[in-house]
Every structure is written in structure tokens, then in C-alpha cells.
């Protein structure tokens, strides 16, 4: 399903819906003082050029550097968490804000500059034209731009297999944080969203809620500053934790439906 829809969407390059939908660009930031300014400015510039109603919401996950001062001086909605919650908790704060303030879509964009703002219209188009609830920006449909390390790619194909096994959806880039959700999904994720390494697990949540998920090919850049939330030594823990979380989420949600 995702495979065919993503190809269709690439062909249908209709105009981005100018100023119809209110879009929340959620940027989680942890110690991103170097990269965050250009990330936010890029999104704002794109919004101005394409006449999109995008508000940038930076969720500062209790950074130890000067991220909070930096974001208070640029054009964005600054949300400063009093304690460090991890990427999932930070993104969920953004989801809650988006839900409360009546946005139609929320798009998650990493604060380290990996996700180029120029790809945002492609993702929004995919959701609007394909009538999708969740759109994931994927590095792997067509291989262009930054492709990440070999070990990470092995992990990603493992999650692809696990997702396929449990819910039958094929997502090529299940660790991608570059994704858009609509208001229907916002109501679910503001209630429950995983804490650590939430991306692969969230796909299970979306699938089991019968949301329509699509994937579009985007190019990503290597990070511009800061360090990845996943170190080399944490990789094994990452795989274990996410596998457990995926399996238990699956069981929990299956039982709830019966």
C-alpha cells in the first residue's frame, strides 16, 4: 500500500494548498544552539515563499547550552521543558500544543538540521492529495542524500521486517523523525506517545489505530551540529528497548480492541 501510494504522490505535484491548513512545525531541540537558528529560519522562509501557514514550535528539552536564549530571540513559539523528557516527551509536548491550538497538521522536524525545510511541501502535498493521516519522509525509497551508517541501516531493515510481521505495513524508514500527522492522529498521540526512541513504536500505534500511513522520498542532510540521540554503544540497548516496546504496544492495543 505504502509503496504504490508513494509513487503516485511523487507524480501528482499539484500546488501546495496555500494558506488553507494551519501547520505546526514541531522542532524538538536538545543542546542544539548551533543548528536551531538556521532550522527555524529555513522553515519560516519556506512558509513565506510558498504562502503556507506554518508556525514553528521549538520544544527545548531542558538543554544545558544556550538553546533557550537562542529560541527566545528568533521567530518561533518557544516551549521550554523544566526537566529533560527525552525526544518522545518533547515531541509529545509539541503535539499537545498543536492539538490545543487547533492546528490541522503537525510536522516533526529535527532540530539538528538533518531535515531540509525544502522537503516540507512534498510531505504536506502527500497528506492532502493522498488523503493520508500519517506521512513519513523516507531516505530509502530512492537513495539520495545522506544515507546514515551501515549499522543503523541494518537496524532500520530489522524494524521494517518487525513492522511487517506485526501489522503488515511496510515502512522503509521507520526511524525517520521527519513525519507529518493530521488532527485525528494528534488526539491519539497527545494521550499516548512513547518516551525514548519513539519513531518505530509510533508506527505500530498508528497502524493499530487504522490510520492511513504513507511514505514519501525525501533527501536528508548529515547533522549540522550537536550529537545524535543514539550513540554507538547505545545501539544494542536501542534495538532491545524498541523491540520490547513494539511487541508490548502491539499486545496492549490488540487486546484493547477485542
Amino acid at each position: 500500500m505504502t509503496d504504490s501510494s508513494s509513487i503516485n504522490l511523487k507524480q501528482s505535484t499539484t500546488v501546495v494548498t496555500e494558506g488553507v491548513y494551519r501547520i505546526a512545525a514541531i522542532v524538538p531541540a536538545f543542546n542544539e544552539e548551533e543548528a536551531i537558528t538556521s532550522v527555524v529560519n529555513d522553515i519560516n522562509q519556506l512558509a513565506a515563499e510558498k504562502k503556507l501557514l506554518i508556525d514553528v514550535i521549538v520544544v527545548n528539552d531542558c538543554s544545558k547550552d544556550s538553546t533557550s536564549e537562542v529560541i527566545s530571540n528568533i521567530n518561533c513559539i518557544a516551549i521550554n521543558l523544566p526537566i529533560n523528557l527525552g525526544i518522545g516527551g518533547a515531541v509529545q509536548t509539541g503535539f499537545k500544543y498543536a492539538l490545543e491550538n487547533g492546528y490541522d497538521f503537525a510536522i516533526q522536524i529535527d532540530g539538528d538540521g538533518q531535515h531540509p525545510a525544502s522537503e516540507i511541501p512534498k510531505i504536506i502535498n502527500a497528506a492532502v492529495n493522498g488523503n493520508l493521516d500519517v506521512v513519513i519522509g523516507s531516505r530509502f525509497i530512492t537513495k539520495e542524500g545522506f544515507q546514515s551508517s551501515a549499522f543503523r541501516r541494518i537496524g532500520i531493515s530489522y524494524f521494517k521486517w518487525l513492522n511487517h510481521l506485526l501489522v503488515g505495513t511496510v515502512i522503509f524508514d521507520s526511524t525517520s523523525g521527519f513525519r507529518l500527522i493530521n488532527r485525528k492522529v494528534l488526539t491519539i498521540v497527545s494521550e499516548y506517545y512513547p518516551d525514548e526512541y519513539p519513531e518505530p513504536e509510533a508506527i505500530i500505534v498508528y497502524s493499530l489505530n487504522n490510520f492511513k500511513i504513507g511514505e514519501v522520498s525525501v533527501s536528508m542532510k548529515d547533522r549540522q551540529g550537536g550529537v545524535s540521540s543514539i550513540g554507538t554503544f547505545a545501539s544494542v540497548y536501542y534495538m532491545l528497548k524498541v523491540t520490547l516496546a513494539i511487541i508490548f504496544t502491539f499486545i496492549r492495543m490488540k487486546f484493547k480492541r477485542i
Binding site: A78, I79, L81, P82, G89, T93, K96, Y97
Partner: peptide, 18 residues
Amino acid sequence: QNKQLAQEIALLKNKISE
């Protein structure tokens, strides 16, 4: 519970500053 409280605080702080 801690997570929920932190999120509420952050959102409220934002509301106040707005």
C-alpha cells in the same frame, strides 16, 4: 506523572509569556 506535569508546566509557561 512527572512527564505529564513537566509538559503541562512548559505549555503553561508558554501561555503566560505569550
